[in-house]
Amino acid sequence: MKAVSTIDISLWRAGGPGAQDVAAQVDEGLQRAGFLLVRGHGITAELAADVRAAARKFFALPTEVKNKYAAVVGERGWIGPGMEANGYSEGTQTPPDLKETFAVGADTATGDRAVDDVWFRANVWPTEVTELRELLTVYTAQMRRLSDDLLEMFAAALGLTANPFDGLADRPTWTCNINHYPPLSSVGEPEPGQFRIGPHTDFGTVTVLDREPGSGGLQVYTDEGGWEDAPYDPEALTVNIGDLLEYWSGRRWPSGRHRVLPPQSDAPEEDLVSLIYFYELNHDAVVIPLTEPVGKVSDLDPVVSADFVKLRLDAITL
């Protein structure tokens, strides 16, 4: 898929003329698709493999065991099948997504219960897979550092002399979802219009995805090409921007629209696990959209991050 650019963030971190070239590639790539493949990120394949292996052990537990950790969308723990339909975020009534999820998130409580009960719930850790806690703690810390670098790089890509996110993400409301996409023998024949994840855009600033390729895998939508299989590079992470960053960019960069296909007839026993890090800002961060000529429009009002994201989370919860 030619619309998705591959960039090397290590060249940007090194500074100099190479960094300027990368920044230009970022701007061009995000204008086309809202997606990038990011190499040179410094996160080892071994760490992701260990997280994935521990997650598979959890997902293989009996349903009655996983029910001890049951949660709904936006909470921490096990979000079982039938709980989520991402197509609703676009106003499309679709059958539930064919997946299950284990979710963790930021637990840096503010002391305000009305805030903490939504954005900073305590994480739930399965006693049956004790290694998952340590592995995910290390993994999400590295994801946060990468996401901060991505936001700084995005600001540079637009020629901004200062990073506007410096004071907006010291207590971010990130979430990390591990999605399990079971095989056809487990989920049954998909209903019409049913996906592993229905068509949608993400809601926050950046999403960092470590994925397994597959026939029933990730597809990306562009106006020029329609739906196409997302490119896969084993040395790269897949990064897309969400609705909040699109809004901040003054609609210069489209929020990356995507979906995950249902199990396919040519690979009915395909069983995939994706690690998905959703990065948002502080719950009370005020996002002031860029105006023309950097942005494409100049009539967008400031928004509060939590209000903006929560509205979209509620829309996909069944």
Score class of each variant (00 low, 15 high):
I9F: 10
W12D: 02
A14F: 05
P17R: 11
G18M: 09
G18D: 09
D21Y: 06
D27W: 03
E28I: 12
R32A: 15
R39W: 04
G40Y: 06
T44I: 08
L47I: 04
A48W: 11
R52V: 12
A53N: 08
A53Y: 09
R56A: 12
F59E: 15
F59Y: 14
T63F: 10
Y69M: 07
Y69I: 01
A70K: 05
G77K: 04
P81M: 13
M83K: 15
E84F: 05
S89M: 12
T92E: 12
Q93Y: 11
P95A: 11
P95S: 10
P96T: 10
P96D: 14
G105N: 05
G111I: 04
W125S: 07
T130H: 10
L136K: 06
M153V: 05
A157L: 06
L158Y: 05
P164D: 02
D166R: 11
W174L: 04
L184P: 03
I197G: 07
H200P: 00
D210Q: 13
T222S: 13
G226A: 06
A230M: 04
Y232V: 03
P234C: 13
E235I: 12
L237W: 08
N240W: 02
D243M: 08
D243W: 05
E246T: 04
S249G: 07
R252G: 03
P254D: 02
H258F: 00
R259K: 14
P262N: 08
P262C: 07
S265P: 11
D266Y: 07
D266T: 13
D266R: 09
D271M: 04
L272E: 09
V273Q: 07
F278L: 15
D284Q: 01
V286C: 01
P293I: 00
S298F: 02
V303G: 00
V304L: 01
A306V: 02
L311R: 13
R312W: 07
